[in-house]
Computed example of a mutant assay.
Amino acid sequence: MNNIRKLCNATNLKYLAMYLCFLDYIHQMFEGMGMPLWLTMLGRLVFPIFLFLAADSFHYTHDRLAYLRRLLYMSWFMTIGNAIIGNVFHNGNVFHNGNVGLMNNAFSTFFITGIFICSWDLLTKGLRDKSYKELIQGFGVFLLPILSSIPVVVLAGINEIPHANPLVVQIVASILSLVPSIIMVEGGFVMVILGLLFYIFRTNRMAQIIVLAVISVIAYLFDPTTVQ
């Protein structure tokens, strides 16, 4: 048992997730060239592993604000990097005009998860200490990722207008892609919930396993492609 615990430490879990992530990206980038489906099926394990590690890191970090800033910067880096890769490299996929199509940005999901973790701690502390100030702060933090989604919804409506200027829409969309929101995170909002529950039940491994199983079933029922 001790050997298993030593083997399943945070560092080894990161190495495992990085390896599986690489396999997943190989399939996504070169699916049109015949990359096998099992590569991305193995990659489905990556997100829960990283969410588990991120939730654990939020508990142990000495500076949450600095941690959130790093996640936000990496989210911007991934968004810009995906755009560059999509326009520079080609994979022979006719459905994307031959361009490599990458929309992955796990750092955005981790950032939103961190926001909700901070909100959870403020709300629970406010309830415990009967502090209205912390309750109001917690509720305000909770609303941030929701409010940041409003411009995205508005842009989607503008895009449906027949005479909307496509260049303006594209520019605004590019700017909004740098603002993490609950409707523009990799894996969807259900992954944010998973990360938050990993944090809430961080001292109970069995509860975390049950949460992962339930969320996996829900994700499959609402979007079967998440396991492909």
Rank of each mutant, 00 (worst) to 15 (best):
M184P: 00
A156W: 04
L147N: 03
F95L: 15
A164E: 02
Q137Y: 12
F111L: 11
V169C: 09
S181Q: 13
H96T: 15
L143Y: 00
S148F: 13
V153K: 07
S131K: 03
P166I: 11
F111I: 07
V141G: 02
S148L: 09
R128S: 13
V179G: 07
P162W: 08
F111Q: 03
D129N: 13
L147Q: 04
A164L: 05
H163M: 14
A156E: 13
I115P: 00
N105H: 10
R128A: 13
S177P: 00
S108H: 01
L147Y: 09
L123D: 03
I182E: 08
P180D: 07
M103A: 13
I136D: 09
L143C: 08
I112C: 06
P145F: 02
P166F: 09
I171W: 10
G157S: 09
G98T: 10
F95C: 11
D121Q: 11
K125S: 12
M103F: 15
I112D: 01
F116R: 01
D129Q: 14
L178Q: 07
F139W: 13
Q170D: 14
M103Y: 15
Y132K: 15
E186G: 09
V88E: 03
L176V: 06
F142D: 01
V94H: 14
L178V: 06
D129Y: 10
I112R: 02
I150K: 04
V152N: 12
I136R: 13
L178N: 04
P151T: 03
T113Q: 12
M103R: 11
P162M: 08
F110S: 05
G140M: 12
P162R: 05
P166D: 09
F89Q: 04
C118A: 09
V100Y: 03
N159M: 12
V168A: 08
F111T: 02
L122H: 03
I146T: 07
P166C: 07
A156V: 05
V169R: 00
T124R: 08
K133H: 10
S148D: 06
L143F: 00
V185R: 01
K130I: 07
G140D: 09
G126C: 07
S108E: 04
N99V: 06
Q170S: 15
I161R: 08
P180I: 05
H163E: 15
S131M: 04
S119F: 03
Q137L: 12
L135A: 09
N105K: 13
I158C: 10
F142W: 07
F111P: 07
F110T: 04
V169M: 12
E134K: 11
N91G: 15
E186N: 11
D121R: 07
